[in-house]
Design a protein around this nucleic acid. Structure first.
Lengths: 213, 213
DNA sequence: CGTTAATTTGAGACCATTCAATTTCGGTGG
DNA sequence: CCACCGAAATTGAATGGTCTCAAATTAACG
């Protein structure tokens, strides 16, 4: 809280950071959803992470000199923009904060590893189930109990770009998960009807999130 | 070099770290190749990175309390095993080393991000070409000029598990890359015949490796 | 309430998989 | 130096999961 920051509001699908840009800030997501993505030369897009409030979306920018991917808001977002230099000074001054911040970047990396597994080796049903498990697991930490109902503003196209599928096939796979009685998903709200079943389908093991307490 | 370490030799396909294991050491690869992987419940395997001499294979173990994936030797390897506590003490004591080590873990993460893109959005030809580009780019840094010829002991099955393909299809794709005059690959040796062409096919941009000097 | 975005549906094509058999290669012992 | 062996690479044919391309329907928004 002692860090200097500027609060900034982003509309839907606004660019927060662009690939190839020199890094000047680190950005904390206060409200709304955001995602990170890379664009391919052929126009394809791969989403590499989704972010929910309370998460840094580009912490690696503190030490890497150049952004290697894009960061976009998913819906209307409020962000706290922290000058990279201020964050790094704090991190140098406080060993405890340093460890916390470093660990945050390491967990980030662990999630990417799991995503490699997800898009590399799981079929469409497991892929989407796994992604939903991860999102719900993380949403649980920032929300009071909502009886399993969560804001979930991702479009099927975004879900598709995150899982390496097409929007059409994502749609069919979601219908399958619904038919199986695992989830409800509509109007930007997600409810998990059968958590154990969804974890089972998605081959989900929370170990990689390193949230044991 | 001041760090305490024990030198250890691993045979082919030996486990260096196992998923779920409490972390006690960090391991530096001195000789040979290694890889990191995750196993799926259904028996599938996804390789999430390859490592060449001079690289740490599990630096995140310094701060995360538990291994979230497996590390295996690929061929005969020599490793320097550094007690986690010793490394962390050094890192606390020296700001310069701290930055270097942290940045190393951040580049690690950047590579995972690119791998998500690779297995998520590229077709088999581009996927394999991209992986070869990355490996050769990294091999160049540790080898004197070898006229484009490098040790490359990965089997086609390992290449397949890293790209999310089957060994059969990997074989056919490698034949295609050979027929196109891009690479030579046999007997554990790789030669790139057309670097620009291979980068083009693989949609390879070295930015994510953060090696600009 | 109009307009655009998002979701849903259908049919056909294709890339990659599966399964099985064959060939080649690398290493080992005689 | 050759015979042998298991691992790795290669080939073929059939299957299948996912994609592509359109069009239709529904939901979101100003």
């Amino acid at each position: 809280m002692a860090l200097p920051f500027t609060r900034k509001v982003f509309g839907k699908d606004a660019y927060v950071v662009r690939e190839g840009q020199p890094t000047t800030d680190c950005t904390l997501l206060l409200k709304g959803f955001a995602y990170r993505q890379k664009l391919l030369r052929d126009g394809g897009r791969q989403i590499i992470s989704f972010h929910i409030p309370s998460e840094f979306v580009d912490l690696q920018n503190g030490l890497l000199g150049m952004a290697d991917h894009n960061v976009q808001s998913l819906n209307r977002c409020e962000m706290a923009i922290v000058p990279r230099s201020a964050l790094m000074e704090l991190v140098e001054a406080s060993p405890a904060i340093r460890l916390a911040v470093w660990i945050d970047t390491l967990i980030d990396a662990s999630i990417f590893r799991e995503w490699v597994v997800n898009v590399g080796r799981r079929d469409s049903r497991a892929r989407i189930a796994h992604l939903l498990c991860e999102m719900v697991f993380r949403l649980k930490r920032i929300h009071a109990d909502r009886e399993g109902l969560y804001d979930f503003p991702l479009t099927q196209e975004q879900l598709a770009d995150a899982t390496g599928l097409t929007a059409v096939h994502t749609n069919r796979t979601l219908q399958l998960l619904r038919r199986e009685g695992l989830i409800q998903l509509s109007s930007g709200m997600l409810r998990v009807l059968d958590w154990d079943g969804l974890c089972d389908v998605g081959d989900f093991d929370e170990l990689y999130l390193h949230q044991a307490i």
